[in-house]
Design a protein around this nucleic acid. Structure first.
Length: 411
RNA sequence: GUGGGUAUAGCUCAACCGGCAGAGCAUUGGACUGUGGCUCCAAAUGUUGCGGGUUCAAGUCCCGUUACCCACCCCA
């Protein structure tokens, strides 16, 4: 027997419906807000991701699916931002522009709750806007989107990680603070400090965290411009009515972020509690060979979001379902035209096999979760009616053929 | 990549110290030949994840392996 690769899933039934409901809501909502949907190739030249995500990140080092064909090294995309910027540059588009993407991403991680090797991201990117107003704007739009699909109980965490100059100054300050305590850090943190020093704050060990609680924070060491930017972002968030908590220890896993970073978290999700994560990346476009262009964006994990939501999404509307029963094959033409009429009114409709006993067809109707059964037989033909049975109550009524259309409209 | 847990009928799970492979739900048929669900009666269902080992005897013990779950790492 064949099995799917580890960390992948077959999407069908309820689960697929739920995901598609989030996609449909995102297309509608962000479309209204001027975000244009974009699709790029699922694979790119591997160098694109090395350059953008950061060569010392774990993603690039051992989580990317890479393959070589004809001496060219390709990679399945592990995230969306790099591809969007590459497409922007390559297609010589004009600024400013807003993009929406709904893509599968690929990372060779060990799967666990809310984490897969092929997973979805709904992301937005706003290219060409540098002002703090826009940082607040896309955070607020994220909040509004979550609320529109019925998500509750998430908190927004905010931080600024400054520009490379701020970070270099801060690194020295932090080093001075940690130097005397180096022996109390865990092995992971010592390694992190060498490779990507901000990431020490992600450590889950309490002994390390106690040390970091009293450590100087990057927000205290921002340069003048970055500090002002951060102050203004918070000002606009208040104008927008967005509640947030400052998390001075929040940093990002990707190297390209500058200044504003944020996460939307949900408390009851276990270790993978981040539903939306994003931030500003003002230097990446230039890094990838494009024009100097400030950008900001975020990505949402639909699988994780769904873990926080009820089985029946409020946004999934159940359409009426009809099942047609024929008593004898000679009623098939009637049934077929009836089906067209029902479909034209926007309802679902299935045909029973009119050669089968009524009992069998009735049972099928139940299986299909039909709301209404319409019976076409000798009695109906004589009286010029259809017998309509409402399945939830068992009540039956005779509806004259001429009045059936208006019945459908009100069903 | 590291650690812990799990794997038995379509599904959820039992099976004592190693001793005939079980139940509920679902399925199928009947009670009910123009009416589903509800009720009652009956039937069918297994490579105990896979491969090896120990034993008179393995679902049970041992080794390996695969998948899933949870956590670390990392991240949406």
């Amino acid at each position: 027997m064949y099995q799917k690769p580890k960390g992948t899933r077959d999407l069908l039934g309820r689960e697929l419906q739920r995901l598609e409901a989030l996609n449909a809501a995102a297309r509608a909502f962000f479309g209204q807000n001027g975000y244009e949907e974009i699709r790029t190739p699922t694979f790119e030249f591997a160098a694109l991701f090395d350059r953008s995500i950061g060569e010392t990140t774990d993603i690039v080092e051992h989580e990317i699916y890479k393959f070589e064909v004809n001496k060219k090294l390709y990679a399945l995309r592990p995230e969306g931002t790099a591809s969007v910027l590459r497409a922007f540059i390559e297609n010589k588009l004009r600024l400013p522009v807003r993009f929406l993407y709904l893509w599968s991403m690929y990372r060779r991680e060990r799967p666990q709750k809310g984490r897969y090797r092929e997973f979805l991201q709904i992301g937005i990117e706003l290219l060409g806007e540098s002002k703090p107003f826009y940082d607040a704007d896309i955070i607020e739009r994220g909040k509004q989107y979550l609320q529109s699909v019925g998500a509750r109980d998430f908190t927004i965490e905010l931080n600024s990680i400054g520009c490379p100059e701020c970070r270099e100054a801060y690194r020295r300050t932090l080093e001075d603070y940690l130097q005397p305590n180096l022996s109390r850090l865990c092995d992971d943190c010592r390694r992190r400090f060498e490779r990507n020093f901000l990431r020490i704050f992600d450590c889950k060990k309490e002994s390390c965290q106690r040390l970091y609680d009293d450590a100087p924070k990057i927000t205290d060491k921002l340069c003048g411009e970055c500090a002002q930017h951060y102050v203004d972002v918070k000002k606009y968030l208040r104008y927008f009515g967005v509640d947030y908590v400052e998390n001075k220890k929040m940093v990002r896993g990707l190297d390209y972020y500058t200044r504003t970073v944020f996460e939307f978290k949900h408390g009851e999700l276990g270790a993978q509690d981040t539903i939306i994560a994003g931030g500003r990346y003002d230097l990446l476009m230039r890094e990838l060979g494009g024009p100097d262009t400030p950008c900001i964006g975020w990505a949402l994990g639909p699988e994780r979001l769904l873990l926080t939501m009820p089985e029946e999404l409020p946004s999934v509307k159940a359409r009426r379902a009809f099942f047609l029963i024929g008593v004898g094959e000679r009623y098939l033409p009637t049934m077929i035209s009836l089906r067209t009429q029902i479909h034209n009114n926007g309802h679902r409709c299935f045909l029973g096999d009119p050669g089968e006993p009524i009992k069998h067809q009735m049972k099928k109707a139940d299986r299909f979760k039909a709301d209404h059964v319409v019976i076409c037989g000798e009695d109906e033909e004589k009286e010029g009616i259809y017998t309509v049975k409402e399945m939830s109550t068992g009540r039956q009524s005779k509806i004259p053929v001429a009045e059936f259309e208006s019945f459908l409209i009100h069903a």
